[in-house]
Design a protein around this nucleic acid. Sequence first.
DNA 1: GTCTATACGAAGATAGAC
DNA 2: GTCTATCTTCGTATAGAC
Lengths: 186, 186
Amino acid sequence: MTSDARERMVRSAAYLFRERGFSGTAFSDVIAHSGAPRGSIYHHFPGGKAQLAEEAVRYAGEFLSAGVRAATRDDDPVAAVRAFLGWWRRVLVDSDFKAGCPVVAVTVESQLSGAAADAFGRWGDALATGLTAAGAAPARAGRLATLIVSAVEGATLLCRANRSLDPLDDVTAELEDLIEAACGTG
Amino acid sequence: MTSDARERMVRSAAYLFRERGFSGTAFSDVIAHSGAPRGSIYHHFPGGKAQLAEEAVRYAGEFLSAGVRAATRDDDPVAAVRAFLGWWRRVLVDSDFKAGCPVVAVTVESQLSGAAADAFGRWGDALATGLTAAGAAPARAGRLATLIVSAVEGATLLCRANRSLDPLDDVTAELEDLIEAACGTG
DNA sequence: GTCTATACGAAGATAGAC
DNA sequence: GTCTATCTTCGTATAGAC
């Protein structure tokens, strides 16, 4: 399978962007990490680095929204949110606070806003769906989902700066209370 | 005054980082934007680009926390928060959604976590002080301040990606309700 | 303190063979 | 599809004169 190498490159790009950022990740890094053949970069990605970044963002958007949907439970409004927060907690801990969100890296450094907006939107939609199913009013669920995505992305940045999980813990505590109140649960 | 050029370079770096990121901003860009003399870069910043970035982050941290303190009113718990959010709203609108937070840019791209943690900490402390003065319990005020900083930083990213103020508006609405409840106000 | 010139090292992208 | 070699651009940093 030759397009296997292609997919590995996309995944490696997403992985490396988290720690080194967009400009800080060279093609050679992606090649080294993915084990993909060097000569086929522009065969698979004629649009160059921008195309690779766009697909990495799309991959991250799809991957995490699928995770949120899988963790959604009608009877537990915070289950999906906890899964979402738990994912970021793991990224931080596993990387010793060196890695963050690849979508954020691309948003800050490049002008690929379309792909980033799509990824953020997918996460928000997945969370909002879960909150609505748990009893929140649809409009409120949308606002809460935006708050959750925003707060988690921001807290991840604070955690990296502080080399500590404290900011994410604080945010988690506040968000869970807020969500339970919005879903009419005790 | 010769150290005037130095300060202009720091401010220009902070300004340019918001839009182009850390790696995307070259010394030549800082020179062009600040009008500072080219030959004095390493005279003023012997530590090179890393030192310039560190001082730019420090400058941003000091600048915004001073703004929050100035806007703090004992009788209005959301006044300082509104000022903080309003600052970011203005950055987004004035730049046509191309600019964000310089501290975030440095956090994502470089390893200057100390300076970034200090900046985030100053903002949080300034906000927490205002919330405490307005009636929130100290421990709660700290958690809320962390949530506010996180959510605003994240929302700014979402706004840039979406080229829209909607995420920040959603976050603002949720945060103001939460703050008023925490301060025992109606 | 400020200048010019340059060394040095990436990194993205392309060309053409296999 | 994949390889190697190379072009080109750019940016940090240094050296040394004024």
